[in-house]
Amino acid sequence: MVDAWFFIINPVSGGGKGIKKWPKLKRVLINNNIEFKEFFTIGNGDATKLAIECISNGAEKICVVGGDGTLNEVVNGVLQQKHKPSEEILISMFAVGTGNDWVKTMKIPTNTKAFVNTLKDPQYIFQDSGKISFQKDGVQTERYFANIASIGFAGIVTKKANLSLKGGKISYILALLKSLRAYRSSRLKITFNDIYIYENIYNVSVCICKYAGGGMKFGPAANPGDGLFDLTVIKDLPAMEVVRNILFLFSGSFIKHPKVNTYRTEKLSIESKENVLIETDGEFIGNLNAEISIVKQALKVTCYNEFNDEG
């Protein structure tokens, strides 16, 4: 079964889209004579365990049927396992989640037939991963991410969006608007590249890829294989200023705002005495303090985008 695709399916992803869309995807796979095996998650963390199990049983191609959170779990399995080098495991994704942001950077089709065609002779790149050490229930914990890690406002928005049944861009916009009234910037200490920032910060996005929050372009110039994070720091902003700039978040032009600074770095640390939330790949994971570092070209992923020096 070395040539087979090992499908890891999250049936509850996207409010149940995983289980609804799998039968059609399965039929198209069979009609196109694509060899595959199927595995279903039951709860949190299952996709990580299944990825490790699949690789131990000879998998060299894994396809996620789920959202960015399920992809994150699979990536953690691929990078944690010891059976094969991570860069020998090809990862793809049929996006049925809430935000579906990673596939936007990679330009992986979401149409069933078009997606299946990409599995026949897949194009791929080697993309970076991020490794983050953070606080969870008072214990220092480590995990990997494949898309974007955000600290501050995005952590609260993500928690609310994942409770929404609407999915997609609208769930993040509604969660953003609901979060504005109560949220206040936090005093952060950010250290990287001999640069030291200590002030009230609204949000920090550590970007490997371009999109988060259902299509918000937090890393408009990010190149997933260049060995660097694109770091976007949003300083203290009033709520109405955030509302006025929502459309610019989706276009990426918000980085021109005078309260926004962008940098590139291989590693950084973020500290705070306040209770500041962290999300990675669209899932809340814990709190500061955090150490974040790049793991260069650790993942072999299907990709139909062409990246240049400008991302």
Rank of each mutant, 00 (worst) to 15 (best):
I132S: 04
K20M: 02
V65M: 11
K113E: 15
V74E: 09
Q297F: 10
L90A: 02
M93P: 02
I197W: 00
I201S: 11
V206H: 01
E283M: 10
N117L: 15
E142H: 13
L165M: 11
E274Y: 00
D101G: 15
I197F: 03
M106G: 10
C209Q: 11
I125S: 01
C63H: 14
E35P: 00
I234V: 11
E88I: 08
E279P: 04
L163M: 06
I156F: 04
K107D: 14
S129T: 14
Q81N: 15
T141G: 13
V242H: 11
V233R: 00
Q80R: 14
L163R: 11
I19M: 05
G138H: 07
A298D: 10
F153E: 00
K136D: 07
I132G: 06
C209H: 11
T302F: 09
I208P: 13
Q81H: 10
V96G: 01
F250G: 04
D46K: 02
N147D: 03
V74C: 06
E241Y: 06
I201G: 03
R181W: 13
G225P: 13
D236Y: 07
A154N: 05
I270N: 01
N44Q: 12
G252L: 00
L165P: 03
I132L: 06
K21Q: 14
T48R: 15
F40G: 01
L177M: 09
Q127R: 09
T302Y: 05
A114W: 08
K26G: 02
T141N: 14
I294Q: 05
G214F: 05
N223R: 11
Q297W: 13
N31T: 13
L228M: 07
G155K: 07
D68V: 09
K21T: 13
I148L: 00
I190G: 05
V103Y: 08
L277E: 02
N33L: 05
N31R: 15
Y202W: 14
I173H: 07
N203F: 03
R264A: 03
Y196C: 09
L25G: 01
K120R: 13
F250R: 02
F284P: 04
G45T: 08
L90K: 12
K300Q: 15
E291Q: 09
C63Q: 06
E266H: 07
G15F: 06
P238F: 03
L71S: 14
E266Y: 00
K259I: 07
I34C: 05
G58K: 05
L177D: 05
A59F: 02
I8P: 10
